[in-house]
């Protein structure tokens, strides 16, 4: 009956709101300390006592994964314009080599619930000391309870590589700045092997253009790639560049300048027009 439904909803909400009583710095701590095994939103607290809410994946490979960021392309035609928080919102500018600098600062933005509709970054990005990373590619605008099922690609690392780089991306990108002209193509950061949770090496390969497929090897996540024109990109998701330096066609995030004009969070994914299966796209 409608009354029962209301009661069920109430009890459900009551159970969810109990989560605000947990004290933990990561989803792993919540899973370990409170034995929570349900995916969803939880409150976390930073070392300085700042409380924030984020999504916890409590199921993949033993669970305890904390969502710390999302990179969302609001307009593939934009060139370092509004919404390009993971490169630059200040135009393609040689004088702003770091762009917005969000890969290596303590700025935060967006909400966990809105992570597939806009860029997201929470204090966990710099506060959590982690060992491994997991990445989900979720079609834009999907609601949180369907992220897992809707994802076109999901994978994680399992070799604890973050221990070597300070425990999170904030520290890793201090070692490998995402900055225009910081080095050349041969100066890329680490490429870490991945374990697939949805998809495989072949589906990863097919997500990118014909020409990029000749440049990379799938089955890795790579950090701070640099292209022929000395533009820096933050992450090559699912791939490792091995033969060529046109990483602007398959790596995301970046500094503030791309020669000539490919600046953006998904820099030149649209080079030969989108989804046509030709050239670089």
């Amino acid at each position: 009956t409608p009354q029962n439904l209301t009661r069920t909803n109430f009890e459900h909400l009551e159970r969810l709101s109990n989560r605000s009583r947990y004290v933990a710095r990561s989803c792993k701590e919540i899973r370990d300390r409170y034995n929570e095994q349900e995916d969803g939103l939880y409150y976390l607290t930073t070392a300085n006592g700042m409380v924030y809410q984020t999504f916890c994946d409590m199921t993949t490979a033993g669970g305890g994964w904390t969502l710390v960021a999302s990179v969302h392309e609001n307009s593939i035609n934009g060139r370092c314009t509004v919404g390009d928080r993971w490169s630059s919102q200040q135009g393609n500018n040689l004088n702003l080599p770091d762009g917005d600098g969000n890969w290596s600062n303590r700025n935060t933005f967006g909400t966990a619930e809105g992570a597939t509709s806009d860029d997201f970054k929470n204090p966990g990005y710099y506060d959590i000391k982690a060992e491994d990373m997991s990445v989900w590619h979720v079609p834009n605008n999907f609601p949180l309870d369907h992220w897992n099922l809707a994802a076109i690609l999901r994978y994680h690392t399992n070799n604890r590589f973050l221990r070597l780089y300070g425990g999170n991306l904030f520290q890793l990108f201090k070692h490998y700045p995402v900055r225009y002209n910081i080095g050349s193509c041969s100066n890329r950061g680490p490429a870490v092997p991945i374990v697939y949770d949805h998809g495989d090496r072949e589906t990863t390969r097919m997500f990118y253009g014909l020409k990029p497929r000749k440049e990379f090897e799938p089955g890795f996540i790579t950090f701070r790639a640099i292209n022929n024109e000395r533009a820096a990109m933050a992450i090559c998701s699912g791939v490792k560049p091995i033969a060529g330096c046109n990483t602007e066609h398959y790596c995301i995030g970046g500094g503030g300048y791309f020669y000539p004009d490919q600046c953006g969070d998904f820099p030149s994914f649209d080079y030969d027009s989108l989804g046509m299966g030709q050239g670089w796209s």
Partner: peptide
């Protein structure tokens, strides 16, 4: 890149 890839947000997790 494929339309699928470009029209998907990239969610980053730590553990």
């Amino acid at each position: 890149a494929s339309k699928e890839m470009t029209e998907a947000a990239v969610l980053l997790f730590y553990r």
